[in-house]
Structures are given as C-alpha cells and as structure tokens.
Simulated assay, not measured.
Amino acid sequence: MNPLVSIVMLSWNRKDDVRESLTRIQEINYDSLEVIVVDNASTDGTQKMLEIDFPHVHLLRMYKNVGIEAYNIGFENANGEFIVIIDDDSFPEQNSIQRMVDRFNEDSELGVVAFDVRNFYQYDETENTVGSTDKIEGNHYIMSFNGAGAGVRKSVFKQAGYYPEEFFLYHNELDVAYRIWNNGYKIQSFSDIVSYHKYSPVNRSSWRAPFYYTRNAFWIMWKNYPIEIAIRETLFFLQKCIYYSLEQSTTIYLKAFLSAIFGINQIKDKRNPIKKEIVQKMRASLDLAFTFYR
C-alpha cells in the first residue's frame, strides 16, 4: 500500500482558484491522499465554499491573516509521511504524486522533490510533454524549491523547523532549504514531476513583494551565513538597496532594511550558521527584490 501523502494548501481570498485547484487534485492518480487547506481568514466566501463543495478536505481556519505561519499549522497537522506543498492557485499533475513517492523510496537522502512548476496558462501546450525522467541538477550548485509545488519528507521538514514564521511572506523556501541541505539532505528536481501554477501579478504589484523580499534577504543572511560572509553580503546588498532606490525612485528597499534592523529581535535566537560551502553553492538570487518597480 502506498504511504499517506498530505497535500497542504494555504488560501487567502482566492475562492475560485482554490475551487479549481481542489477539483484538479481530485483527478490525481494516487490512492492514499489527505488534503489540508489552511485558510488565512479569507473574506470572499472561501471557507463556506470548502464546507459545501469539498467536505472531505481538512479545513483549518486562521483567526487573521498570519502569512506563512499558517502553512506551519498545516504541516504540523499533516499525517502523511510526505507533504506536498502548493499555493491556492497551483496543483500537481495527475501522476506526479506517485512519481514523487517513488523517488523518495529510491533515495533515503532525498529530503525535497522540487516539482517542475509550469505556467497553468500554457497547460494545453505542456500537459502532453510530461514523461521524461531526467533529474534536473547541476554539478557545481545546489537548489532551493518553489512553494507552488514541492514534496518533502515530513520528518526532514520538521527537523529543519518548517517555514520561518517571522518572514510573513517570501523567501521562506530558501531559508528552510539552507537548513535542509545543512542537515545532510538533498533537494532535487525531476522533469516528470510537475505542478501547474497560475502566475498572478495580483499580490506582486504593490509594495508587499519588494518590501518582504528585501527585508527577508537580510534576515536570511543574518540567520544562516557564517559571520564573515554575512557581513560582506550585508554591505554588498545594502549598496544594491541604495542603488536601486535611486534608479527606481522608491524608498521601499531602505524601509525594508530599516525593518530588518528594528525587527532583528525576531531572529536573534534563530541564528544557526550553516556550512560555508552550502552558502557558496546555493543557486539562489536575492536580487529578485529589485525587479518589481522596473
């Protein structure tokens, strides 16, 4: 019998997307699934829709929008040996759960299967291309994962502390990826393990994305980097904040830096430097913060 897999979705005011994603999940070819939706106090009728249309789904209600902290509530309540993480506008391809479980069973050091996250709006063009079993990796770098589609061993995830609740939004995958690698597990992507995601500009067209990406980039350095690298990269990143503030006529990056400084108490007890080689080999750009106002 297949091991139980828990699909954990975080929702917030995307009722129609949640309905579509859960409808697609019902088509998955895997016989041992539980679905958990953690709702961040939606006001658009999401919870009522879930109660009526998807009574089999385990609904966890937050009293307010607590950001990614709500994901951790879902992870801790998951009963599966493996957890599949999705957004409220993403879903796994029909055969990807079985393929994911097979990869985990083949390699005890595999901590996370990073799905090949594809654009839902090109679904008709890509659904028939799923099938190659190539492993996507490089010889000189290591990778994080995309929270719109990833499978993780619950034991590995719990050991790493789940997502950093203090981040609220963005860069949470990278932060936990550092810890997973540092604990001796791997993150790998396979081209036949696919999820589809509605890439939406809705939440990325305001100050929220550049602010949280910038602030959390500093916190990632201060929490995880060895001291000499943390100092060097902090100064380098601060220079970028100043440059892009002038280039884009915005103060958001500097406000984010000040927020990181004044909010440092939120991470002061969470600093746990990882191995230098992991920082050097991680394929992740913190410069994403600077792309939203161009």
Results as ranks from 00 to 15, higher is better:
N2Q: 12
N2S: 11
M9N: 12
L10C: 15
W12R: 14
N13F: 10
N13T: 04
D17F: 14
S21D: 05
I25E: 07
I25V: 15
I25F: 05
Q26S: 06
Q26T: 07
Q26I: 01
I28W: 04
N29L: 08
Y30Q: 03
D31E: 15
D31Y: 05
D31I: 01
I36H: 05
A41H: 11
D44G: 02
T46Q: 10
Q47I: 12
E51H: 03
V57M: 01
V57T: 03
L59Y: 03
R61F: 01
Y63V: 07
K64T: 10
I68A: 01
I68H: 08
Y71P: 01
I73T: 11
G74Q: 00
F75H: 04
N79V: 00
N79R: 14
F82M: 00
I86A: 06
D87C: 03
D87E: 15
D88N: 00
D88R: 00
D89Y: 01
F91D: 01
P92Q: 00
E93L: 01
N95L: 12
I97A: 02
I97E: 05
Q98M: 08
Q98S: 15
R99N: 15
V101T: 01
V101N: 01
F104L: 00
D107H: 00
D107Q: 00
L110E: 01
V113G: 00
V117F: 02
N119H: 10
Y121V: 04
Y123K: 12
V130E: 04
G131S: 02
D134G: 07
I136E: 10
E137W: 04
I142V: 14
M143N: 15
F145P: 03
N146V: 12
A148Q: 09
A160N: 05
G161P: 06
Y163A: 02
Y163I: 02
E166W: 14
F167G: 03
E173Q: 15
L174E: 11
V176H: 10
A177C: 05
N182H: 08
G184C: 06
Y185T: 04
K186E: 11
K186W: 13
Q188P: 05
F190Q: 10
F190V: 09
S191R: 14
S191D: 12
D192M: 08
I193E: 08
K198G: 08
K198S: 14
S205A: 13
S205Y: 12
Y213G: 02
A217P: 07
F218W: 13
W219Y: 09
M221C: 12
W222C: 12
K223T: 12
Y225D: 08
P226G: 10
P226K: 14
I227R: 13
E228P: 15
E228H: 13
L235M: 14
F236V: 10
F236H: 11
F237C: 13
L238Q: 13
Q239G: 15
K240G: 10
I242D: 05
Y243W: 12
L246D: 13
I252A: 05
L254A: 07
L258S: 14
S259D: 11
F262I: 12
F262V: 11
G263L: 10
G263M: 06
N265A: 06
N265V: 10
K268A: 10
K270M: 13
P273W: 05
P273C: 05
K281G: 08
M282N: 03
R283D: 07
R283I: 04
R283P: 03
A284D: 06
R294I: 07
